[in-house]
Design a protein around this nucleic acid. Structure first.
Length: 564
RNA sequence: GCGCCAGUAGCUCAGUUGGAUAGAGCGGGAGCCUUCUAAGCUCCAGGUCGGGGGUUCGAUUCCCUCCUGGCGCGCCA
């Protein structure tokens, strides 16, 4: 049991002894100011009303009733409006480090999720171009949220959904065709350089073919043949469409690979149609009685489920609106056994939330009301040289993930996307991310880790041999050591909180603060060339700090280099 | 007009689900290298927490209202 849990148990016992209600639930918290001790509780203030006494008096009675020594408390004092502050004995505090060493790379992991399944869908870009900064933020968020859930005992499936149908694919195919034959592109076509790359790659592949419409044609003539047949040859159009989509999917795979992100499942929207799942979802919705026909269209009465107006499912032209396959897709997730589904998307998609949930509710098949969950993030602005960057050479109209990774490196891109809460707008400062100095938070954290490794390296000490056995814990009594130890011990709760809230930025901030404590401690106190018992104790602290930094960086998908 | 999100130091942002004197980085000012990485450390300055009400022992946090910004509001995806 950790120190705060022991104190809490003691508090409950003492509170009952002085006549508190049976459901007394003291809240333990870390005082912001270290001068206020290591732990504090507001118990006396919450008891003021039921006991009809002043908080300060209750606090005094509580302290008198507490068995402090049993809980490892050196001192308990009343402060402020009625807080009780506890100071943990130095040895007692430091001895908790043994637990960190013992757990090692499992420190901070819990089984709160009990192995239940959760599907995390992220990126889900249309295969119509390279991944842009928004996808980058999604990739970083989705992958980190997945890692956090895994750390807290969930069985995670990372999923990518391809919208591989619809008008955007048509537009892509047309754009490639127009580039191929050298015609003018209309305003609403895709204008990026990558369209030319696809066109060139297509010609190259066709040039190697010994059969088909292009067989034997010299390079010059191929475009002409294509142009001739384009309007009449559906197979040819289909061929170019397939090629273009495959090309871009491959490009996106490379983008994700460069970012160190991998998905377990790639789900194609088109499969929902070919497998008849869209049709069966529509039938099920009709059967459940929440649909109606109006103006030659089929509607879903989403207003039965908190929407502000009803939505069209099947248009006059007989095709479905986009949210129908979306509902069908989430039914599929549910049927695949995912009790939770989390979708990471840009906030410009937030209007779909109500609709998809309404569709799932309308089926009345026991899907929970909040299914799926959404993590929506705001826009990303890329700044360079003090100015907003809007144009990429490759993509034309936006900045790509690859541009950023090439420029500042994978770790920095990951950190910068994760350092801010998702629902605040993000300014990506390329110059800062690039700088390999103290200003750059990701280098700052990695440097803290590298320095800890340096101690073992220089001292020629095998870290694996450093254990908690026989360590003089009372040696770790310097203020910088106490603060660092407390921060390290907070890690499991932090992971748990970040995972529950689906907020990786908490980890990013925590690591920055912890790294700062490591640097401060490192600067002020030496490990090597100190008396044996001090060195041993500090080696344990260094090892514990290293474990926490490594585990933390892992949940962000950032490397922890041993030297820099 | 309606909905969602945001508004905290000059700038970029945290704020542990309602706690004590609101924090950090950058920027500004002053210092620190014979010792495990100066890719670092220490100190100083800087605030009507967008405005106004309310809820209570206590509000940056919860509720109401107004102001400002972003994103949505299609038989587009």
């Amino acid at each position: 049991m950790s120190a705060d849990e022991r104190i809490r148990a003691e508090l409950i016992r003492a509170a009952l002894a002085i006549g508190a209600p049976d459901d007394v639930a003291p809240v333990m918290e870390r005082p912001r100011d270290p001068a206020h001790g290591d732990w504090a509780t507001n118990l006396a203030m919450t008891l003021a009303r039921p006991l009809k006494q002043k908080p300060a008096e209750i606090a005094k009675s509580l302290i008198a009733a507490l068995n402090l020594a049993d809980a490892g408390v050196a001192e308990a004092t009343v402060a402020g409006p009625g807080f009780i502050n506890f100071r943990i004995a130095a040895g007692s505090l430091a001895s908790s480090l043994a637990g960190i060493l013992e757990a090692g790379d499992r420190f901070g992991r819990t089984d709160a999720g009990q192995g239940r399944t959760v599907n995390v869908e992220f990126v889900s870009a249309n295969p119509t171009g390279p991944l842009h900064v928004g996808h980058g933020r999604q990739a970083a968020l989705g992958d980190s949220i997945s890692a956090l859930l895994e750390h807290t005992g969930w069985k995670v499936t990372r999923e990518f959904y391809y919208n591989d149908g619809g008008v955007q694919i048509q537009r892509l195919t047309d754009s490639v065709f127009l580039r191929l034959v050298g015609r003018e592109l209309p305003e609403d076509a895709y204008h990026g350089e990558y369209i030319k790359e696809i066109a060139a790659a297509y010609l190259e592949e066709k040039g190697r073919e010994t059969a088909g419409p292009f067989a034997g044609a010299p390079a010059q003539a191929m475009a002409a043949r294509l142009a001739e047949r384009w309007d009449t040859d559906e197979k040819l159009r289909d061929d170019l469409r397939r090629f273009s989509v495959a090309y871009l999917r491959h490009e996106q795979d490379l983008d994700l690979k460069a970012f160190g992100v991998s998905h377990d499942v790639f789900f194609l929207e088109s499969s929902l149609y070919t497998d008849g799942k869209v049709e069966s979802t529509v039938e099920a919705l009709k059967k459940a009685g929440h649909t109606f026909e109006l103006d030659d269209a089929l509607w879903l009465r989403t207003t039965d489920f908190d929407d502000d107006k009803d939505r069209v499912m099947r248009k006059r032209d007989g095709t479905y609106t986009y949210f129908v396959p979306d509902v069908s897709y989430h039914v599929d997730k549910w049927n695949r056994g995912f009790m939770r589904a989390i979708n990471v998307q840009g906030s410009d998609h937030h209007s779909t939330v109500t609709r998809v949930r309404a569709g799932l509710q309308a089926l009345e098949i026991g899907i929970p009301k909040g299914y799926p969950e959404y993590v929506l993030h705001q826009m990303v602005t890329v700044m360079k040289g003090g100015e907003e960057v809007k144009i990429s050479k490759r993509a034309g109209s936006y900045v790509t993930v690859r541009d950023l990774i090439d420029e500042v490196g994978r770790d920095a891109v990951r950190y910068f996307f994760l350092m801010r809460k998702g629902d605040s707008q993000l300014v990506f400062d390329v110059d800062l991310a690039r700088s390999q100095s103290e200003e750059n938070p990701v280098y700052y954290i990695q440097m803290a880790h590298a320095r800890l490794c340096g101690i073992f390296r220089v001292g020629e000490i095998d870290a694996a041999g450093v254990t908690a056995d026989g360590v003089h814990w009372e040696c770790l009594a310097e203020p910088e050591e106490r603060e660092l130890i407390k921060a390290l011990l907070d890690w499991p709760k932090l992971v748990q909180g970040a995972a529950e809230a689906l907020e990786p930025h908490r980890v990013a901030n925590y690591l920055l603060e912890t790294a700062r404590m490591v640097h401060t401690w490192y600067h002020k106190h030496h490990v090597l060339n100190e008396p044996e018992h001090i060195m041993r104790a500090r080696l344990v602290l260094a090892k514990a700090a290293r474990i926490v930094l490594v585990n933390g960086l892992e949940t962000l998908g950032i490397s922890a280099p041993e030297r820099m």
